[in-house]
């Protein structure tokens, strides 16, 4: 890793923003743990020192819900991206290594999945989920593994055919050594870039589902769901809507800024 100060300012800004969101998602639920308690007498209460964002239409603490929603988005999206990357890389290396039938079948499957925009896969799974985490998680991970598969397969094929790997094989090193010494160092940097991109996609998909109303179900707080719930009360309490919008936009902006912006400067 290059030190933070030697990076371009957009990337530094990205790290700072991401750190702020992470801090909020990790520390927020500890500071304001009660996201579900309703106090109907205090509905749409204006912001105060104890409740920086006021209370919502059911008298629930908005900041507690927001922190809990941010934590949910981040860990669920992170889990999905990690699983998708793991699955994609394993299958990609397998496909490049074995060739033949394995390669043909896996590539056909990947082509088929590619013809289905990710959100559609997630939508079908959300019909099965009925608000459950597990099915949403499987859907999100299955929607993303193909990118990793294609990248790993394409790179690994080139690498596995290279003289370095041939030499390693002739020296008697096994698959584990070849993967660790030859494939991993080449694949890792690209994987990191793809994962920051995938994280944004997963967070976005999750909040989109919540917003449309087919993702995480109430009373669980979720960013998109909070926006839908806040919409009717916009004129009385705009902070109800603007707070989750700000958290989502800042998270996505941070992840966009992390990547190098100039494709060819």
């Amino acid at each position: 890793m290059t030190p933070l100060t030697s990076r371009a300012w957009p990337q530094r800004l990205g790290y700072v923003l991401l750190a702020a969101v992470l801090l909020f998602a990790l520390a927020g639920p500890l500071l304001w743990p009660d996201y579900a308690g309703q106090q109907l007498m205090r509905f749409l209460e204006t912001p105060s020192l104890a409740e920086p964002l006021g209370r919502d239409q059911l008298g629930r603490s908005v900041i507690a819900r927001l922190a809990s929603a941010a934590r949910l988005s981040l860990w669920l999206a992170g889990l999905c991206v990690l699983s998708a990357a793991l699955l994609g890389c394993l299958l990609g290396v397998l496909s490049a290594w074995r060739g033949g039938w394995t390669d043909t079948v896996l590539r056909g499957l990947a082509d088929g999945v590619l013809a289905l925009p990710g959100l559609l896969i997630v939508l079908i799974f959300s019909a099965m989920a009925q608000g459950g985490f597990l099915t949403l998680y499987i859907g999100l991970a299955l929607a993303q593994w193909v990118e990793y598969f294609r990248m790993t397969r394409a790179r690994s094929r080139l690498l596995l055919a290279s003289p370095h790997v041939e030499a390693s094989r002739l020296l008697g090193f096994g698959p584990a050594h070849i993967v660790r010494r030859h494939l991993w160092p080449e694949l890792a940097p690209m994987l990191l870039t793809m994962m920051s991109f995938g994280l944004a996609t997963a967070i976005l998909a999750l909040s989109t589902l919540g917003f449309v109303g087919v993702g995480i179900q109430p009373p669980m707080p979720e960013l998109g769901l909070m926006m839908t719930e806040a919409l009717p009360h916009y004129s009385e309490a705009p902070q109800l809507l603007l707070a989750p919008v700000a958290v989502l936009a800042l998270t996505l902006a941070a992840l966009v800024l992390l990547r190098p912006l100039e494709v060819n400067p």
Binding site: L204, T208, F211, L231, V245, L252, A253, V256, L261
Partner: peptide, 13 residues
């Protein structure tokens, strides 16, 4: 960059 950070439903909103 602004539009990338603004998903369709936020922009619509």
């Amino acid at each position: 960059v602004l539009l990338r950070a603004l998903p369709p439903f936020l922009l619509g909103l």
